[in-house]
């Protein structure tokens, strides 16, 4: 079966970890993830600048490794990202900001990508909150 997974919470929220564990279990169960979509505060999970405390799980790094290893389509909402200062090199240059913090494998795109993923998937799973 095909899943679209939307993450609404930042990396330090338990629900972001839950989303990752669900995604890993879905793939392990032989299912497909058509797209991961990071929306609202979820865009912080894609930042390359997050530094997790040494005794805590580095969730942005886990997400990055997971997306790269599984070669997933991982989209970060561009409007949500810009207002939270999560920029790739192109956007940093466009808006003349001093740094970019959205390295590959993430892609910036619009909310239409969430709609499209939901249409193409058997289930849309949304993760947010505590």
């Amino acid at each position: 079966m095909k899943f679209a997974i939307a993450v609404f919470s930042p990396a330090h929220a338990p629900s972001s970890r839950r989303a990752l564990r669900f995604a890993q279990a879905a793939l392990a169960g032989g299912h497909e993830i058509v797209r991961l979509f990071f929306y609202q505060d979820g865009v912080h999970s894609a930042s390359g600048n997050v530094v997790a405390p040494q005794d805590e799980l580095d969730l942005p790094a886990e997400w990055r490794a997971f997306v790269s290893a599984q070669q997933l389509d991982a989209v970060v909402c561009i409007a949500a990202a810009l207002r939270r200062g999560v920029l790739n090199a192109e956007e940093a240059q466009r808006y003349q900001r001093p740094a970019a913090n959205l390295p590959p494998p993430w892609e910036l795109s619009g909310l239409g990508q969430l709609h499209e993923a939901a249409q193409g998937a058997d289930r849309l799973m949304c993760f947010g909150g505590d």
Binding site: A25, D122, R123, L124, M125, G129
Partner: peptide, 19 residues
Amino acid sequence: DYPAFVALSLHYDKVNSWL
């Protein structure tokens, strides 16, 4: 557990998260 969470999400026709 998580594998059962995945199975549950497929057992029901839709999943609604109270975000």
